[in-house]
Computed example of a mutant assay.
Amino acid sequence: MKFHGKIALPVIMLLLAGCQSGHKGTDKGVASVDPAADRCGASQYQNYLGKPLESVSSLRFSTPVRAIPYNSAVTMDFNLQRLNFLGDSDGKIARVYCG
């Protein structure tokens, strides 16, 4: 009986490994975006990371937008429709998010 148990365990493990769903990643290592968490379209503006915060002023948006300079005071209201560009101490965009 012991011999059958030693064979059964690896066989079961292989069968279970075959049932796993594969990772459906996108090209270039970009993570997939949850549509419910990206209501403002922040995923479309991730290419602005590292650019000057002033570059946001030349863009046109269909949603409310907030450019937040480094260390500035902002309201704490949470609005998933609002697009936020957060600046760092060098005046560059460090984060783009909804909220």
Results as ranks from 00 to 15, higher is better:
Met1Asp: 02
Met1Thr: 07
Lys2Thr: 01
Phe3Met: 00
His4Ser: 07
Ile7Arg: 00
Ala8Ser: 15
Pro10His: 10
Pro10Gln: 08
Val11Leu: 15
Val11Asp: 06
Ile12Arg: 08
Met13Gly: 11
Met13Glu: 08
Leu14Ala: 15
Leu14Glu: 03
Leu15Arg: 03
Leu15Thr: 09
Leu15Gly: 13
Cys19Trp: 06
Gln20Tyr: 09
Gln20Trp: 07
Ser21Asn: 12
Ser21Lys: 13
Ser21Phe: 09
Gly22Asp: 10
Lys24Leu: 02
Lys24Asn: 00
Lys24Gly: 01
Gly25Thr: 05
Gly25His: 02
Asp27Tyr: 09
Lys28Val: 03
Lys28Leu: 04
Lys28Ala: 05
Gly29Val: 06
Ser32Lys: 15
Val33His: 03
Asp34Gly: 00
Pro35His: 00
Pro35Ile: 00
Ala36Gly: 00
Arg39Val: 11
Cys40Met: 07
Cys40Trp: 03
Cys40Asp: 07
Cys40Val: 01
Ala42Lys: 05
Ala42Met: 08
Ala42Trp: 05
Gln44Asn: 14
Gln44Ala: 15
Gln46Arg: 04
Gln46Leu: 09
Asn47Phe: 11
Asn47Met: 08
Tyr48Gln: 03
Leu49Thr: 09
Leu49Pro: 02
Leu49Lys: 14
Gly50Cys: 04
Gly50Ser: 07
Pro52Ala: 11
Pro52Ser: 04
Glu54Cys: 00
Glu54Ala: 12
Ser55Pro: 01
Val56Met: 03
Val56Asp: 02
Ser57Tyr: 12
Ser58Lys: 12
Leu59Phe: 14
Leu59Ile: 14
Arg60Asn: 14
Ser62Met: 11
Pro64Leu: 07
Pro64Ala: 10
Val65Cys: 06
Val65Ala: 11
Arg66Asp: 05
Ala67Ile: 02
Ile68Ala: 10
Ile68His: 08
Asn71Ala: 15
Ala73Ser: 14
Val74His: 03
Val74Tyr: 14
Val74Gly: 10
Met76Asp: 15
Asp77Gln: 10
Phe78Gly: 04
Phe78Ala: 14
Leu80Gly: 04
Gln81Pro: 01
Leu83Glu: 07
Leu83Lys: 06
Asn84Asp: 07
Asn84Lys: 08
Asn84Ala: 02
Phe85Glu: 00
Leu86Gly: 11
Leu86His: 09
Gly87Leu: 06
Gly87Ser: 13
Asp88His: 10
Ser89Lys: 07
Asp90Val: 02
Lys92Asn: 14
Ala94Thr: 02
Ala94Arg: 11
Val96Thr: 14
Val96Trp: 12
Tyr97Trp: 04
Gly99Met: 05
Gly99Thr: 07
